[in-house]
Each structure stands twice: as C-alpha cells, then as structure tokens.
Amino acid sequence: MVTIKEIEADSLEALNELYSELTGVTANPGKLKETFNMIKADSRYILLGAYTDGELLGSLMGIICQDLVGDCRPFMVIENVVVSSRARRRGLGKQLMTAVEAIAHKRNCYYIILVSGEKRKEAHVFYERMGYRDEKVEGYRKHLTSH
C-alpha cells in the first residue's frame, strides 16, 4: 500500500538516494539536513514522499510563489520529481502529482509549472497523461558557481 505524506528528517538518507538516482549526484548529508530543516520551516515548500511499506520510493517538491500579475494569485513550481527505478509504473508518481495538485488548489494557485530535461521522454509522456501540456516555451537555466 502506498502512503503519500510529507517527508520527515528520518527519511533524509533515502531521499538522498532518490536524488542521486535522479541527478547522479549525492548531497553532503550535513548540508542536506541543514537545508531540509530550512525548507521544513517555510510553509511555501511542500516536500512529499511516496512510501510503500514504510520505504521512501518517490518524492517531489512543490514551491508556492506569490505573483503580482492580474489577480495576484500564487502559482506553484514543481521540482525534483523522482520515483525509484525499482518502483516505476506502480502509480506512485501519479499519486504524488495528484497530492501536490490538491495542495495547489487548496492554496488558490492559478497554475502549476514544471520543467523536465529534454531527454526524459518517458517522464514527458507521464506529465502529459497527468494533464500537463507542452506550451512550446523556451526554458533557460544558468548555473551559478560560488566564488
């Protein structure tokens, strides 16, 4: 049985493993914990996990951003969507997305935006099945380095 709930500190090691699967990079555990605590203290962040028999097998983060356009309603950005390769095609991603969308509705968000790497074609099919549309916008990213 799958349980969708907010991730707590006791799942950080498993979350780091999921992110490593997503990005190929493992975070420094101390920095991960410090940043996690900061995120947990900020109600604009939603960090959800999909648990099967107590094991974290999927996650995503939603961030509520206040807008100054039109009715000044907030919007949500979704990042770091990942389901373990051991648990794909079992509905975990769908349950995570449905849960975060419900939170976006509850918080009166006007829309949700997410980006996905160009080569993640399987993920794109999933997002389209969830009702997300490729609006043919250009996405740009600039990686900043510390001095």
Results as ranks from 00 to 15, higher is better:
I4M: 04
E6G: 10
E6W: 02
E8Q: 12
A9Q: 11
L12C: 01
A14S: 14
A14V: 05
L15S: 02
L15I: 05
N16G: 09
L18P: 05
Y19D: 07
Y19N: 14
Y19M: 13
L22Q: 07
T23N: 11
G24K: 04
T26D: 00
G30S: 12
K31Y: 09
L32W: 01
L32K: 03
K33R: 13
E34R: 04
T35G: 11
N37H: 12
M38P: 01
I39F: 11
K40T: 06
A41H: 04
Y45M: 06
Y45G: 03
I46Q: 11
L47H: 11
L47A: 07
L47I: 14
A50L: 06
Y51Q: 03
D53L: 08
G54L: 08
G54V: 06
G54I: 04
E55F: 00
L56V: 04
L57K: 14
L60V: 04
L60C: 12
I64Q: 13
I64V: 15
C65V: 15
C65R: 09
G70F: 10
G70A: 14
R73K: 13
R73G: 05
R73A: 15
M76N: 07
V77E: 12
E79A: 09
E79Y: 08
V81S: 03
V82N: 02
V83G: 03
V83R: 02
V83L: 02
S84N: 04
S84I: 03
S85C: 10
S85A: 13
S85I: 12
R86Y: 08
R86M: 11
R86D: 15
A87D: 05
A87T: 03
R89I: 07
R90Y: 04
G91T: 09
K94F: 06
L96F: 01
L96H: 04
M97F: 07
V100N: 08
I103K: 14
A104S: 10
R107I: 03
R107G: 00
N108P: 01
N108C: 07
C109E: 10
Y110M: 12
I113Y: 11
I113L: 13
I113R: 04
S116G: 09
E118G: 13
E118N: 10
K119E: 15
K119L: 08
K121D: 13
E122S: 09
E122T: 12
A123S: 13
F126N: 00
F126M: 02
Y127E: 03
R129C: 08
R129I: 06
M130C: 14
G131R: 05
G131A: 10
Y132N: 01
G139K: 06
Y140W: 06
K142H: 07
K142P: 00
H143G: 07
H143M: 15
S146H: 10
S146I: 10
H147L: 15
